[in-house]
Every structure is written in structure tokens, then in C-alpha cells.
Simulated assay, not measured.
Amino acid sequence: MSYSDILVIAMGLTAVMILGVSILMLKVIKFYVKESVHPTPFPSPEEKARQEIALEQALALKRLKPSIWSKIMGLKPISEEKDLVMEHEFDGIAELNNPTPAWFMVLFYGTIFFALVYMFNYEVLGWGQNQEQEYDTEIEQAALAKEAFLLKPGNAKNAVNENNIEQSKDEAVIKNGAALFQNRCTPCHGEHGQGIVGPNLTDAYWLHGGTVKDIFKTIKYGVPEKGMIAWEKSLSAQQIADLTNYILSLQGSNPAGAKAPQGEKQP
């Protein structure tokens, strides 16, 4: 902020202060002229007494008149408590028969009305969806949204899934899959897929199916009961597809120390 800007702001504030003082001076002058022309008479002691009595009567009337808050809350003035005392009394303590506030009764009957409308709408007439139906609808919408997302050109790599994957023997795909296999699968399946804790991946026997779709699905969702995690959380769909194609390329490689066959033979 430059010096000229600060000067302009200071001059503006000064002008506002001068304007405020001028307005106050005008009010003072106006009051002085009015009192000079028509001076306000001072009330006599009798008039003061009458004014005080009138003020007290007005305040008493105001106190007797219930306020809007008292009407809403159903409150009664203390002067009426003697009329609300119930007949029974215990240990010198009496109970007041105060009615339930109107706002509470409105809410109470409102909840009953809402419950009836809700029941007829969802359970009798079937106009609205209950929680289970809403859940099913949201699942369908999510599936449609996922399909639309995968169909976008920028998401082509994620379009592959267990339903549309096809086997590829492209060298680049196999190479990418081999790198993924070495980094993630060797602790359980061995460096050459011969099987260690996990099954042998080089023979024709499979525990969860040996087609390209079966292998993709097994890698994607895992086998939690046997300790295999779901790789869909850390690998993209294209990476899972590359890994699937590499595993299929191991068929018939017969590595040394291969684990005994497990599962059913894939035709």
C-alpha cells in the first residue's frame, strides 16, 4: 500500500468523522430552537404522582397479560398457583396440576401422524422405497456409473475385467507381468511359479480354475481363507491382466522342484 493510498484512507475517515459531528450539532441546534419556541413545561408534584400511578397500573396490566412465550410453553403466572394445587400432599410438598405444554402435544401427535403416513407410504401402498430397496437401487446405480467410467477413453486401461479379458501372448505384456510376479508373487509361488506355500502355477491343475478369466478373478479378489490377498486394492486392472497373461505363459515350463499338482486338471 503506497503513501497516497494511506493518505486517501485517512482523509476519508476524517470526512466521516466530520459528517458525524455535523449531524450531532444539527440535532443539538434543532433541539435548542424547539425548546426556545415551545419550552417543555416541568410537571408539578401532583402530575408526577399521577404519572407514576398510571405507569404502575400499566406495568401491572402488562404483567397480567400472558406473553407469547408463556402461551407457547403453557406457563401459568405465580398468582394462579393456588388454583393448580392438587389435593394430595406429602411431607409438606404439594403438586401442581400443570397441563402438558401445547408445543409438546403438537410434537407428540405429529410423530403419530408421521408414523402412520410413513407406514402407509412404505409398507402398505409401496409408493416409496424401504432401506433394502434403496440399497439395491444404489448398487445398480454404482454399477452403471462404473461402466460409464470405464468406457471413457482416458480410463481404457481400467476397462478390462474378469468378464472381458482375453489371453495375450504379446512380449511387452508378458514382460510387464513377469516384473509384477517377481515383486509380489514369488514368496508364495516361487521364482518360477513352481509353488511354495501357494500351488504350482506351471502344471495343468488348478484350484480355482485355469482359464484366463478364472485366473484374473482369483488375482483380483484373492482367496482370503487361504491367505491370498485381493490385489485389486494395489494393482490396476491392466496390471492384473498382465500378471494373468504371464502366469498362463508358465504353462508346461516344468521348473525344478515343482510342487505336486493340486486341484482339478484344466482341459
Rank of each mutant, 00 (worst) to 15 (best):
D5C: 10
D5V: 13
L7R: 14
A15N: 05
M17Y: 08
G20V: 14
K27A: 13
V28M: 10
K30Q: 15
K30N: 15
H38N: 15
P41R: 12
F42T: 14
P43I: 08
A54R: 13
A60N: 09
R63G: 04
L64K: 15
I72Y: 10
G74E: 10
K76Y: 14
S79G: 07
K82A: 09
F90R: 12
D91C: 06
D91P: 00
N98Q: 12
T100C: 08
F104W: 10
V106P: 02
L116Y: 08
M119E: 09
M119P: 00
F120R: 04
W127E: 01
Q129N: 14
E132Y: 07
D136G: 03
E140W: 04
A142I: 08
F149T: 03
K152L: 14
N155L: 01
N158C: 00
N163L: 10
N163H: 11
D170C: 08
Q182V: 05
Q182L: 11
C185H: 05
C185Y: 03
C188H: 06
G190T: 04
L201A: 02
Y205S: 03
W206I: 01
H208M: 09
K213G: 05
D214H: 09
K217P: 00
I219S: 01
Y221I: 05
M228R: 02
E232Q: 03
K233I: 02
A237I: 00
L243S: 04
N245S: 08
Y246S: 05
Q251R: 15
A260I: 09
